[in-house]
Design a protein around this nucleic acid. Structure first.
Length: 369
RNA sequence: GCUGGGAUGGUAGAGCGGUCAAUUACAAGAGACUGUAAAUCUCUCGCCCUUAGGGCUACGCAGGUUCGAAUCCUGCUCCCAGCA
């Protein structure tokens, strides 16, 4: 598929959507995103429930007007936060999963607030967000789990997907949404490294019927042949009439590996987080034949811009980048801004890294059949 | 000139007889980060040997006391503050 069609709009595929978890791509605004060539963002349902909350989103008629972004808006269900918050805060303070949904503790660690996110609640909130693509609440397991836990997580994911789909239809009819205003609903395929479980999960999700299917779970290492095999295999068994979404993907080279495998939609925190952590991308040569390259990551290198060796360098981050930063500012200036801890450093770095992603995506659009 | 206080690794600054190649912070170096917990985290940081570990030279300079000194004593050099 060359285009994603939703709500009477068309988006070129593949598409990369940086994460705007709390309705902001950290350190940049939506005008920056547009200038950089970013066509979509991915917001997070669980986080938006608390800030700014349902009432504010209702008042604005959705997150699109709230953040003033014209592009594609994906809302992640909050499923990943089970994994992420438990990892960050520990089981007691982070949360846990029960059959009815996911329990989270938000707020400060001293005054935690208990929340139960059910599949129904996640979908209802996603309608308040007004996203173009909604994601079913899923049970995202951490890596290194037992086969039994893996199976449980798959079963939960399927049962929650069923409930999400029912709630989705209910919301559509409650809101009397005409076809041109209908969002898409994606299911998430879990099952870890176990192909049988992945296949079972997918086949059950196909029975329920979604517009697209995401590869969920912990991000596979694109450098590991076994995992690349899993990525490819899963893309193959998802019928081509559905959109294929790599959730949380990925590094620059991952975009190439996944696109080659057949995926079309991505979201990831990495380019923006890397930027804030002073890791910038330098393209080594003009972008071409990315998919055909023997080593997918050979076209770029990481530049740690805070290092002293860049202190006097009067040249752009990347000779082959056409972003605001590379056109106007030197490495030395960025190095200086980071040393001062000046917020502008993060904005410029984020603009640059996102532009590299946008350029890679643009090139991949040319290369995919 | 007198009186008092200092001189510690790239910098600031702990240590005040053995557990000190020396807490810590910053600087420096190398990384990590993948549906955002994170402008966050990890490692290295006197010299030499490949790590475990070992060896060497070091806390202003020169002596001394002691089994043992960055730490105590004496002298010297320099710095700071107050008083002349």
């Amino acid at each position: 598929m060359k285009y994603l069609k939703v709500k009477n709009k068309k988006y070129k595929l593949p598409i990369f959507c940086p994460d705007a978890t709390r309705a902001v791509v950290r350190s940049v605004d939506t005008k920056d995103l547009i200038n950089v060539g970013i066509d979509g963002v991915c917001v997070n349902t669980l986080h938006l429930i608390h800030d700014p909350g349902k009432a504010v989103l209702k008042k604005f008629g959705g997150v699109r007007k709230f953040m003033d972004f014209p592009g594609l808006i994906i809302s992640d269900s909050g499923g990943f936060q089970v994994f992420s918050l438990i990892y960050a805060r520990g089981k007691k303070k982070g949360g846990r999963v029960i059959d009815d949904g996911a329990i989270f503790y938000t707020g400060g660690l001293k005054k935690p607030v208990k929340n139960l996110l059910t599949p129904e609640k996640s979908i209802q909130m996603q309608f308040e967000i007004g996203s173009d693509i909604m994601i079913c609440l899923d049970d995202c397991p951490s890596s290194n789990i037992s086969e039994k836990q893996n199976k449980t997580s798959v079963e939960r994911t399927i049962s929650w997907a069923r409930r999400c789909e029912i709630e989705f239809e209910k919301q559509i009819s409650l809101r009397h949404l005409p076809i041109i205003k209908r969002p898409l609903l994606f299911g998430v395929v879990q099952g870890g490294d176990n192909k049988d479980l992945r296949e079972f999960c997918l086949s059950e999700l196909l029975k329920i019927g979604f517009d697209g299917y995401g590869m969920g779970g912990w991000v596979p290492n694109a450098g590991n042949p076994l995992q690349v095999d899993l990525i490819k295999w899963l893309a193959k068994i998802i019928p081509d009439k559905y959109y294929k979404y790599g959730l949380g993907i990925g590094k620059l080279e991952d975009l190439i590996v996944f696109t080659k495998a057949g995926y079309q939609i991505y979201d990831c925190v990495l380019p923006t987080r890397d930027a804030r952590h002073q890791r910038l991308y330098e393209i080594k040569k003009p972008l071409k034949n990315l998919i055909g390259a023997r080593v997918p990551k050979s076209f770029f290198r990481y530049l740690y811009i805070n290092k002293q060796k860049h202190q006097k360098e009067n040249k752009p981050i990347s000779k082959y980048c056409d972003c605001l930063v590379c056109k106007n500012y030197s490495r030395a200036y960025l190095n200086h801004l980071f040393k001062l801890n000046e917020p502008l450093a993060m904005r410029l770095a984020t603009i640059h890294n996102l532009r590299i992603y946008a350029m890679v995506i643009r090139q991949l659009r040319k290369e995919v059949k």
